[in-house]
Computed example of a mutant assay.
Amino acid sequence: MTTPTAEGRPPSSRQGGRPRHIRRCRPTRQGRVFAAAAAAAGIVLAAVGTSALVAAPHRTPARADIGSLPLPQGAADQGARTARAAPPVRIRIAGIGLDRPLTRLRIQEDGRLGAPENPSQVGWWSEGPRPGDPGAAIIVGHVDSATGPAAFYSLSSLRPGDAITVDRGDRSSVTFTVRALRQYEKDAFPDDQVYAAAGPPALRLITCGGTYDNEQGGYSDNVVLYATLAAPGTPKPSTPPSHTHHRSRN
């Protein structure tokens, strides 16, 4: 994600500012040491995440290219909503057994979006659109750590039609339907497409992907899940669906 920003503190979303890319998508020093040990043992690293994780024997990672991207639409009807949605406090994805509180993330001085401090946490871009408001709300999570799977480890197993529910601070909730998953090289990240500040309510879940570069200490790509507001009357699943998906090793 390489959207240029002005020198100094980047503008807030109200001023048109967007993150350049996710901050700290590289392993910590502990993760780098762990990665080196794994490489010495002939074991490759999982391709998605922020820290090193011992994975299966080496093979070329399959790129995430699933489902159809939502078609661009005009601005949402502002007359239908006069009050801003309450901030999100929790994300629930029954299909992968995820139920986590949300922490606030902000754009840092270098123009990058902060990441959760703990691999088990999930965060939302608090300066961007809120879930249920016009535009795309951004939620970020780690996939692995030096000790094992993290919050978004199973994200790539989701498929179009799966439900994502976000609980908000006023005890309301909003449900989104998965439409697509895409994997992008970081130097070719489609900022305008992902960070949509206007249009119908949408949701983007973002993590790292691609191959792990031990010399550079980071991952080559980003994985983005696209979701749109569920149709009125869509039931909110309380238990995981009967079908299971196999996570691609990205």
Rank of each mutant, 00 (worst) to 15 (best):
P70G: 10
P237H: 09
L203G: 02
G218A: 08
G141D: 11
P61V: 14
L158S: 13
S220P: 07
R81C: 04
A39V: 04
N250K: 01
P235S: 10
A80E: 11
A52T: 11
I93V: 15
S242T: 14
R247L: 09
D77K: 03
T175V: 01
L105D: 08
V174K: 04
C208H: 12
G95D: 15
R59N: 08
R20F: 00
R9P: 06
T175I: 01
Q78A: 14
G111D: 01
R249F: 12
A231I: 06
G217Y: 02
Y195K: 02
G161A: 11
R81Q: 13
V224M: 11
D167M: 04
Y212W: 10
G128R: 09
R112V: 00
A46C: 14
Y226S: 13
R130L: 13
F34I: 01
A39R: 08
D77R: 07
H246R: 14
P57R: 08
A64D: 12
A46K: 09
P200F: 04
L45E: 05
G97D: 12
A86H: 01
D99T: 07
A62E: 15
G67D: 08
N222V: 00
G148V: 08
T228L: 03
P87N: 04
F176W: 04
G17P: 05
I138F: 03
W124K: 04
T28S: 15
T28D: 13
T244G: 07
A196F: 01
G42D: 02
S68N: 14
